[in-house]
Design a protein around this nucleic acid. Structure first.
Lengths: 121, 121
DNA sequence: CAGAATCCATTAAGATACTG
DNA sequence: CAGTATCTTAATGGATTCTG
């Protein structure tokens, strides 16, 4: 809309903190409504596109395809195309993805802690 | 506390999966640009509002105050007001927050994994 | 000091229809 | 089968000003 090149501020570099940069990267991996769920699903076994769609009934084509593409770009998952008929495309965790998996598998435990009802001091 | 799957009816509850619900709750705790960072900061020591602001130079009043309020509501942190002059308000991790901390402290490691440059198979 | 209120910009998410 | 393309809406982020 209003293009004012002079107004560009580097807002993303504020904390100038290595620790913060790592946190941002980690959040980029798991944030969004489906990324972490996709990673955990693919942590169990390789799945093809249609299988993923069945396991995430609420997600639209655009969002699922977009999230998968983002995860490929981030190096979390790998996309393998098999030139068969009909076409088969499979998604698998990369080495990095498998390395991160043990930590990410603890995330549901976080949810469990905050669903519990005990003294909140 | 567990909802009956049949009662889940709106679009936000589609997977009807207990595991997915835990993931959503976990993401609610740490998502957003500052929540995880705030939790990790407060994991080191109690801080007052102005101290938090200094450690997050890029964040606006509205966002910081809003995120702190959300974290209090979620039961992650506690807000203590001291009727001094000038006013003092301190934020501290709750018991749940301290319980979740060891897992959340691993998150920067996720960032580290995906910043590394090694074979992405 | 520690925020609340207001207004605007940016981004994410979703429905639907269509394609190699 | 495995996605794109397009459009629309919802959510989030941020600057600025004001207050007990």
């Amino acid at each position: 809309m209003n293009a004012h090149p002079m107004m560009l501020k580097d807002r993303s570099a504020q904390p100038t903190d290595a620790e913060y940069a790592l946190i941002r990267k980690a959040l980029e991996i798991i944030s969004g409504k489906w990324r972490l769920y996709l990673i955990l699903l693919l942590g169990e076994h390789t799945l093809r596109y249609s299988e993923l769609r069945q396991r995430l009934p609420a997600v639209s084509e655009k969002v699922l395809a977009g999230e998968l593409k983002a995860l490929v770009l981030l190096g979390v998952i790998r996309r393998d195309v098999f030139a068969e008929m009909p076409l088969r495309v499979e998604y698998t965790l990369t080495q990095k993805g498998r390395l991160a998996l043990p930590i990410l598998q603890q995330m549901p435990q976080i949810g469990r802690i905050f669903n519990e009802c005990f003294d909140a001091t």
